[in-house]
């Protein structure tokens, strides 16, 4: 292919040649981000509630402490206290083979395990690591959000006869969610950028594509500048979406 030069030095033909690969990488990055935001939020809510679980009477009191609060606290501490990169490697090379292994997988073994690992190994590990990691961060956002709601709100709701669960669902979480949107948005943006780390275990997303292209041509500006612009566009889009949500859920707080 004839080199196409932009501004005298930028080889646009390389990007054009790998256009399809960049497009697939972009799709993969978006897919991973969306899945991990959804799962991480669900997990974060569950862990956040577990960290707040309290009961007055035994045995519920002991269950809350030893089966909910302690494990969730350790979980959050571990995933926030170790590098995401290490978590990805640990899950991909150590944890996943334990469960999905042709020889003796605890979950899946035999031929299914072989093909699953070959085709989707990096995808599964990457999603798992990123979900577990963001779940830990998001649980702290939920916890802080829920704790920031005035006790009087809970008392008013409970004294109307609403159960704890209904109070959470109708009164506390909608108000907490509004306050949690900015930190949740930051977390989503961080997650989008961190998804690039999964390229280390061979998942063909944006960063992986750039590395491949760079390796093929020994050109670095073109691929890395291109994906930088793509990441930047995506994060700007996310930030805009969060702003829209904030406006939508801001009803009632004219203060």
């Amino acid at each position: 292919m004839e080199p196409i030069l932009w501004f005298g030095w930028f080889r646009a033909d390389i990007i054009a040649e790998y256009g399809v690969m960049f497009w697939r990488g972009l799709q993969m990055t978006i897919l991973v981000t969306v899945i991990c935001i959804a799962q991480g939020t669900a997990l974060g809510l569950a862990i956040g509630l577990a960290r707040l679980a309290e009961a007055r009477h035994s045995p519920a009191r002991q269950i809350c402490r030893y089966l909910l609060r302690w494990p969730s606290t350790v979980y959050v501490s571990f995933f926030r206290g170790t590098p995401l990169f290490v978590q990805i490697l640990l899950i991909h090379f150590a944890v996943l083979p334990l469960f999905i292994n042709p020889a003796d997988g605890l979950l899946i073994s035999g031929e299914t395990a072989r093909s699953l690992k070959q085709n989707y190994g990096a995808f599964i590990s990457g999603i798992l690591a990123l979900t577990l990691n963001s779940g830990a961060y998001i649980s702290e956002i939920f916890r802080a959000g829920i704790q920031s709601i005035d006790r009087g709100q809970i008392e008013a709701s409970r004294s109307l006869g609403l159960s704890f669960a209904r109070t959470m669902y109708h009164v506390v979480l909608p108000q907490a969610f509004r306050r949690m949107l900015p930190p949740l948005g930051n977390n989503a943006i961080a997650l989008l950028k961190d998804s690039s780390l999964i390229s280390a275990i061979g998942l063909a997303e944006l960063a992986y594509t750039a590395r491949t292209v760079a390796g093929a041509y020994s050109r670095y500006w073109e691929p890395y500048l291109s994906i930088s612009l793509m990441y930047w566009t995506l994060t700007l889009g996310l930030a805009w979406a969060v702003k829209r949500l904030e406006a939508r859920y801001g009803r009632g707080d004219t203060r």
Partner: peptide, 12 residues
């Protein structure tokens, strides 16, 4: 029924 000093209406 209970009525509180600080009203505690649901602001949302």
């Amino acid at each position: 029924g209970m009525v509180f000093q600080r009203f505690n209406l649901f602001p949302h």
